[in-house]
């Protein structure tokens, strides 16, 4: 079943067309990877899907319904959640509270109920906390639940973001470069975790520069370049695609930025 269908999405900034007539589908139960050199438009596409930026043309269908006019919070309610390329945790809150915010779309008490602490609200609050703790344990950070999010390292922030996104009970999870800033061991654990999440029935669309991770876990790979799709298929098919190789070689040599450790390395070493 097609869970997400992007049809002719387009977005420009001034004169620059960051996403140009992109169409693709994500099927239920998949792990789909989106790769492409820096500036290819991957994050922009994520922003379009999650409603932060409107697409200028085309449609975004989620479970067959058009969502491209919805606000981001409505899209979260519909069942799409995401992480950000720069972890955007609520730095003044604790890890636990951050993840509890993720439960927002699945809970309902408002100003009056919360002010007066109705019994139902107290029960709900307890459930929120339990569910959040469960997600924190799931990503392996239970020992940090009460630390302020601002005191965490980069890798830990990524994990908290993941837990926060999972707490919204998404059907589709968008991960924007989840492995950047992680060491090889952590990256490997992350791969296992992503698989585990998929096995619970969550469909995953991820942007990643770490090719070994991408080739390892994804069922399907989409390659973006200068805002357009240049290849789509299984990891091995994409790896052998001439266009992809030339894009990566050309880009990779010219723009080997520090920190982009594997953007030019297509095949596993």
């Amino acid at each position: 079943m097609k869970l997400l269908e992007v049809l002719n999405a387009r977005r420009s900034f001034g004169g620059l067309v960051a996403v140009d007539q992109v169409s693709f589908s994500v099927f239920s139960g998949q792990i789909k990877a989106m790769i492409g050199p820096n500036g290819a438009g991957k994050t922009t596409l994520f922003n379009i899907i999650s409603g932060l930026l409107p697409t200028e043309t085309g449609k975004i269908l989620f479970k067959g319904k058009n969502i491209h006019r919805l606000k981001p919070f409505q899209i979260a309610h519909a069942g799409i959640s995401r992480t950000f390329q720069n972890p955007s945790l609520f730095l003044k809150m604790s890890v636990l509270e951050n993840v509890m915010v993720g439960r927002h779309s699945r809970t309902r008490w408002g100003f009056i109920g919360c002010g007066l602490r109705f019994p139902g609200q107290i029960r709900e609050e307890k459930h929120i906390q339990e569910a959040a703790l469960e997600q924190i344990a799931y990503v392996g950070l239970e020992h940090l639940a009460d630390s302020p999010a601002g005191s965490l390292g980069f890798g830990q922030r990524r994990m908290v973001e993941l837990a926060r996104a999972l707490a919204t009970e998404p059907e589709l999870l968008l991960l924007d470069e989840p492995a950047s800033g992680l060491n090889p061991k952590e990256t490997e654990d992350l791969g296992l975790l992503i698989r585990k999440i998929r096995d619970t029935g969550v469909t995953i669309l991820l942007v990643e520069h770490d090719m070994s991770l991408v080739m390892d876990i994804s069922d399907d790979v989409l390659v973006l370049h200068n805002g357009s799709v240049i290849a789509e298929g299984t990891p091995s098919a994409v790896q052998d695609d001439q266009k992809v190789i030339s894009v990566y070689l050309g880009k990779g040599l010219a723009h080997a930025a520090p920190g982009e450790k594997s953007s030019m390395r297509l095949r596993r070493p």
Binding site: S50, G51, L52, K71, P72, F73, I75, A76, H77, S81, R82, F84, S88, L89, F90, L91, K92, M93, V101, G102, H104, S105, R106, R164, A165, T168
Partner: peptide, 10 residues
Amino acid sequence: DQETAANAMG
């Protein structure tokens, strides 16, 4: 803290 992220979290 993060209005955009808050919105994306529902």
